[in-house]
Design a protein around this nucleic acid. Structure first.
Lengths: 368, 368
DNA sequence: CTGTTAGCGCTTTCAA
DNA sequence: TTGAAAGCGCTAACAG
């Protein structure tokens, strides 16, 4: 019950000597151990890091003293010397909670985590700090990182260079000299829309996630490639993005975004009979809203997604969608990153993963 | 195309002076800036941290030089002084990829992330390092952490104390002096099983996630509380855990675990008409497997889950389950943690969140 | 096998 | 307003 002091303390702090009433909380350092054990700091360091360089008894004695004094090496001091943190980061331009609200991110991180496991690394999620992703990038205690949701022109990339941190971009339109893992967005989008058009749909809406570029014609990166794919599919059907029957909307990349966009979809004239969402999460929201309104998918509205999240197969109707290998994307990016962190020789710097249309039950042939 | 040198380099490294051919890659330090700007290191430090203490022109000049030389302060060195890392951790006893394969974890992290956002913190996911969670705990560059999946007796807790790191446990049977956020497991389990029994089911299986204790009677913590709840529900129906018609199984806490356990369920005699899974993720697997085998939920098998993941409502049949406020759990834990990290005065150290049975379509009254 | 001696790069009194 | 100097706690040559 040493509760009496230190109201702010969340947990009892182990007094260095184990003596209850002790007030001074100076952390036990390597110097204390050295003194107590009658050896040099070097010896203590060796005892922890390369015990082989010490006689068994010396090492044992040192470790004993350390145990008694409750000593734990300060990892920050260690990092300052070794220049290693044993952690890699994932930079995300949104808040963490927002990022994880899209199941996509969890799967990506899961893939990255597999590599962390093999390499003995921890994983730092790095969101903007007080609104500034740059500040967060400056402060991150990591050995390298994976950058998501940013273009190569971003200042963050500049800071990473400045900090001399290896990094790999994901889903970016990166130049040759920047490592990057992406998917064939063009092909995915093309297949998705082609599928709908071949089913006879002509009134179709394309629901994109929010871009900062504003208009479809100014899209860059992933979005641009996907819309190029859409353009081709439309052209093949004698249509174009500016056709009266083709609508382009943007919404938040979340389930809530899908719900929100549903209402706008219902206002459109002519009302679309099919929609392709640029993210499964958005599709989930659209389907949910549709059903809440007593309408049926695909009866009243065919829906195609993009991603093929694990949940997409389980939904009813199961979701027709463009599958991309999300976990592998994370895994490949993390592998490339670790090659750089470990300074292993590597060549391939750009990886483009294939996508595949998975036709399930959320789309149906247009009647009439 | 400075590709020629440094095969191991993942990205071009910005040469300190911007000169292409430069080979020496010594990082620019505060000393370089001081020298170049003709001021002391102190001044440079001030220019970055408390520019107010310098004349506007001096500060500007220093920053200019820093910009030109591509200087970025070394956050590790800074941390060594300030004793802050601006990151909190989440300790997980499994691999990262395994942890995130249960949607529960993503939602928990999402809640924690909300606090990170408010407090300007990054979030470190800390899995075992080379098999050792202890080693990972020793090495983590964090200001405090949230501990999941561990009991208070765990060595990790001892190390956290040794390192003087504030921490909060989640879902643990923690003693008074250890901060903890949990739910009313007893009530949740009781309601879940009571629901099934009231629907007339008598042949029921309880599918738990893997424990290390082995037998039901040796369960501790969360699992113990839940089984106490089950015991009460059974008792109210004149049954007990050892009744012939009640089966207890364990499986991995994942969808795959649910699929795996389904096969064992089908072998049981008498074959259960209902099952309560201790995790929605497991329930997903059971439902999926059931349907794959051409059987119907709840027609052939009623299923109750535990968690109420976001996806549980979207599934068909939508899942009857015990809702626990997962995000809030993470949020509350993170708030308590940050109170300790920021040394704010706090009192409540134990939080027990309520649960609630959500009856949906995966359970039905027993026929006959 | 063990200890001495420099740092690692930055912050922060304390003086000027 | 600015600077000198003493650390923060540890690692790693280099001697002995």
């Amino acid at each position: 019950m040493a509760q009496t002091d230190g109201k702010w303390q969340l947990n009892e702090l182990a007094a260095p000597t184990g003596v209850a009433g002790e007030r001074v909380q100076r952390r036990v350092t390597i110097t204390d151990i050295a003194r107590q054990a009658g050896v040099s700091k070097t010896a203590v360091s060796f005892a922890f890091n390369t015990p082989g360089r010490l006689s068994a008894e010396t090492a044992e004695r040192i470790l004993d003293v350390a145990r008694q004094l409750g000593y734990a090496p300060n990892p920050i001091a260690r990092s300052l010397n070794t220049r290693r943190t044993n952690a890699i980061g994932v930079i995300v331009p949104q808040d963490i909670s927002e990022a994880f609200s899209n199941l996509f991110f969890g799967q990506l991180v899961s893939g990255i985590g597999q590599v962390c496991n093999n390499e003995g690394m921890s994983l730092m999620i790095i969101p903007p700090m007080r609104g500034s992703l740059l500040e967060a990038t400056y402060a991150a205690l990591i050995d390298g990182c994976i950058v998501t949701g940013l273009e190569p022109e971003d200042e963050v990339v500049r800071v990473l260079r400045q900090r001399n941190l290896p990094f790999v971009m994901v889903d970016a339109d990166a130049p040759e000299h920047i490592a990057c893992v992406k998917i064939d967005d063009f092909d995915g989008a093309h297949q998705a829309l082609q599928h709908l058009l071949r089913l006879g749909h002509r009134e179709v809406a394309i629901v994109s996630f929010e871009s900062f570029s504003g208009h479809v014609d100014q899209y860059t990166g992933t979005l641009k490639h996907r819309f190029d794919g859409f353009r081709l599919a439309l052209k093949e059907a004698g249509l174009s993005l500016s056709s009266r029957s083709i609508h382009c909307l943007e919404t938040k990349c979340s389930q809530a975004g899908g719900v929100e966009v549903f209402n706008r979809l219902m206002q459109l004239v002519p009302r679309p009979t099919a929609v392709v969402a640029l993210s499964d999460t958005i599709a989930f929201g659209i389907i949910d809203a549709t059903q809440q309104h007593g309408l049926s998918v695909p009866g009243h509205l065919s829906v195609v997604g993009f991603d093929d999240l694990e949940a997409s197969r389980l939904l009813r109707p199961s979701l027709t969608t463009v599958r991309q290998p999300i976990r592998e994307k994370g895994l490949r990016a993390a592998e490339m990153l670790m090659d750089a962190v470990r300074r292993r020789f590597t060549l391939p710097r750009h990886v483009v993963l294939p996508v595949e249309l998975v036709v399930r039950k959320s789309t149906v042939r247009m009647e009439g």
